[in-house]
Every structure is written in C-alpha cells, then in structure tokens.
Design a protein around this nucleic acid. Structure first.
Length: 420
RNA sequence: GUGGGCUGAUAUGGACA
C-alpha cells in the first residue's frame, strides 16, 4: 500500500513527473485509491523543483481524471506561485478555492502570507492579518512567524517587535523560529544588543538555541564590529554543541573577517574542517575577504590557490573579493590580472566584479581606465548603479573634472538611480 | 467520530559612502 507512494515520490523527486502521473493513472479502479494525496505528492515535487507549468498541468490532470482537489492540493498550488513570486497567481488560486467552497485552513493563510512576503508586498500581508482578526481567526504561530520575518528582512525591526508583542497578547506562544527571526532581524538592522536581549528572552522562555540562533548572533556581532563578543559566543556554543553546522562556521569566519581578525577566521576555518565540514563557496569568499580587510593580499591569493587546488571552482563572489583585496592594497595591475582570469575561468563578471575593479581604478586616479570599464560593462548589458556612480563622481571630483562629475550626476538622476 | 499520510515561517560570503 505504501509502495506506490514511495514510487511516486521517487519519480517526481527525479523530475519524472509524467511517469509519476502514469503510476497514479494505472492505480485507477484498483484496490488502493491514491486520490488527492497521490497527486499532491507530484504537485509538491513540482513546487520544490520550481516547475510551475507542470504543477498546473498536474492539477488540471487531476481534475480531468475526476479527482476533486482538496485543501492540501490548493495549498500546494499556492505554494508553487509563492515560490516563483507570483503573488497574483497565488490569490487567483485562493479565490478559486473560495468559489468552489473548498475550505481554507491555517496553511492556506500561511502560504498566502509567505507569497506576499516573497513578493515584498508587506501591506498586503498586514491586510490579511487584520482581515483574519476581523473574522475572529487568531493567526497561528507560523503566520506570525512569516510576517515577523518578512518585516525583519525589510529592516522594519520595530514593526516586527510590535507583531511579536501582539502575538503574545493573543496567547500565541512564540517558538524557536520566531526568536531566531527576531535575532536575524536585529542583526540586519545592526542592533547587536537587541539581538542579545531577544536571545535572553528566548532562553527565559525555556527554548533551546539552535544553529540558526548562533549563526545570527555571530553575524550580528560581526556587523557591529564586536569581535570578542562574536568569538566568545562561538566558543561558548562549541562547548555545549560541538556539532555546529557549516552555517555557524561560515558565520564566525565572516564575522572575524569583517572585524579584521584574520587569524581567528583561519582558526575557525581549521575548526570547521576538523568538525568534518567541507568548506563551500561562502567559506572561501569570507576568508578571501578577511585577508583583504587586513590588507594581506598575498594570503588572499594563497587561499585562492588552495581553493582551486582543492578542486573548488571560484565563483563571482570569490573573484570580486580578490579584486577588492588587490584594490584596497593599491595593487591595481594585480586586480586587472584577476579580472582577466575571471573570464578564463568561465565565470561571468557581474556588476559587483566590475564595480570592484572600477572603484580600484578610481581610487588610483585612473579615470580613463574607469570609464573604459564603464563602457565595457555596458556593452555586456550591465548598467551602472549607485555604487558605480559614486566611485566615478568622487574620482572626477578629486581630479578636478567638475563638468564630468556633474554630467554623471545628471545622468544618474535622469536614470532615477538614487544618489546618496 | 478518531488517528495517520501529501501543503506554509527562521541563519552564512563580494563593490561606493
């Protein structure tokens, strides 16, 4: 009886959706009835794979086979829209289920809220929250969590905290997700002390901090320049939870790097490997950055080499970090060498790669080279952003080229790039 | 009626100031 489920799961997990459907069709009229559950396994796999069109096909296929979609099926379809930031599609599905009298549940609302959040439509999310309360429905902990997290990601820490209080006033008990979101929100808003307040609150509530908690805390310290505090909390955590995951290690490496603590960053790097984790692209670019921040270009290059020796393909982040390190140490020709090697490595330089090099040129007063790069990036379809304009304008200013600076400023405004 | 299955929320890396 469970065999067909495993088969359908495996097939749809391998993106063999048509074969999965064929299995469901073959079961029709037999002794087992996969029904909405069977189709939802396929739908959920489409959602994970981001295969929107296939998901709709599966949904229609289910209907045409006389299987009436239930709340779960509609929820999954809403989730598909949500993942692809198709907020309109999500609400269309919701309205359709209302029209057909299929009851919405907490998951429906939670998924809709998540859709709003992914599409950065916080007003709509708040409207839903209010509408639910008007209808006498108290949002559950996941709904609160979704909106709290969305607010935090937009830098609206105070509103996130307001909602946190609102949920407690409604007797909804905060869980680990909620506290972790708030700690991450504090980190994003560069409020490390707030992060620790929430951390204390979390422990007073009897909840165990997890890897999410610690990586957010460490990141908060790193952003605030609290090197020792980052290291402290990391060490304390290791004492009680030696099996921290790679996120935690990457976070401490990055935090140490930001604070100019290269040696600690490398110590954590060793600890990471000793813990059995394979360093990933986050690890390497954080380390390169750590070297760059400390003006140790040679160490950055050595690391870059060991990274490729280990069979790792550098990505645009690694290259940009290396270019930035060269620029910061006034090694412009080396920066250009790296830039050339980007293309050779088959990596597409992106806006940040260009702007790192362009800024290095600007800082050295090589306006000609900077404008050449501007031209070059435009020729591959990359437009200048605020960072690029700022670099150029400030370099023109220093070089006494006021006309050019003003022209750039006008151009920037006419393209409605916000000056800062 | 009850239980179960498929669906929703959290953390890490690069450029100007």
């Amino acid at each position: 009886e469970q065999r067909w489920k495993r088969l359908v799961k495996r097939l749809s997990g391998d993106r063999r959706f048509q074969e999965a459907l064929a299995v469901l069709h073959a079961l029709e009229g037999g002794s087992v009835y996969p029904g909405p559950v069977g189709y939802n396994i396929v739908l959920a796999a489409c959602a994970k794979a981001g295969a929107v069109d296939v998901a709709y096909d599966v949904f229609h296929n289910m209907e045409s086979r006389g299987v009436v979609p239930n709340t779960y099926n509609y929820n999954t379809l809403i989730s598909v829209c949500s993942r692809t930031r198709n907020i309109q599609g999500a609400f269309d599905v919701y309205h359709r289920m209302q029209d057909l009298g299929v009851p919405a549940d907490t998951v429906t609302y939670g998924t809709l809220l998540h859709a709003c959040s992914k599409a950065a439509d916080l007003d709509r999310a708040m409207q839903i929250m209010h509408a639910l309360k008007e209808a006498g429905i108290t949002p559950d902990v996941v709904m609160y969590g979704t909106v709290i997290d969305a607010l935090g990601k937009r830098g609206l820490l105070d509103q996130a905290l307001d909602l946190f209080n609102d949920m407690k006033a409604n007797n909804v008990a905060p869980n680990t997700h909620i506290f972790n979101s708030l700690i991450a929100a504090s980190s994003k808003s560069n409020q490390a002390s707030k992060a620790f307040e929430i951390f204390d609150d979390m422990q007073r509530s009897g909840l165990e901090p997890d890897d999410f908690t610690f990586s957010s805390l460490v990141t908060a310290c790193g952003r605030a320049g609290l090197a020792d505090k980052a290291w402290d909390i990391f060490q304390t955590m290791l004492a009680s939870r030696p099996k921290a995951n790679e996120f935690v290690f990457n976070s401490i490496i990055s935090a140490c790097g930001r604070c100019g603590q290269v040696d600690r960053a490398f110590e954590a790097f060793e600890g990471m490997k000793a813990a059995g984790h394979t360093p990933d692209s986050f690890t390497y670019s954080s380390l390169i950055n750590a070297c760059g921040t400390a003006n140790d270009v040679d160490r950055a290059f050595a690391l870059f080499t060991s990274m490729t020796d280990a069979g790792f393909t550098p990505d645009a982040f690694a290259f940009s970090s290396l270019i930035h390190a060269c620029g910061k140490a006034n090694q412009l020709s080396r920066a250009f060498d790296v830039f050339d090697s980007v293309q050779r490595a088959g990596v597409k330089p992106d806006l940040v790669t260009y702007s790192a090099l362009l800024d290095a040129c600007c800082k050295r007063g090589h306006l000609d080279k900077a404008f050449e790069l501007l031209h070059q990036m435009r020729s591959v379809g990359l437009e200048a952003n605020e960072f690029v304009y700022n670099s150029l304008i400030s370099a023109c200013g220093k070089a006494g080229q006021l006309h050019t600076a003003l022209d750039l400023f006008d151009e920037m405004r006419s393209r409605s790039v916000t000056p800062s």
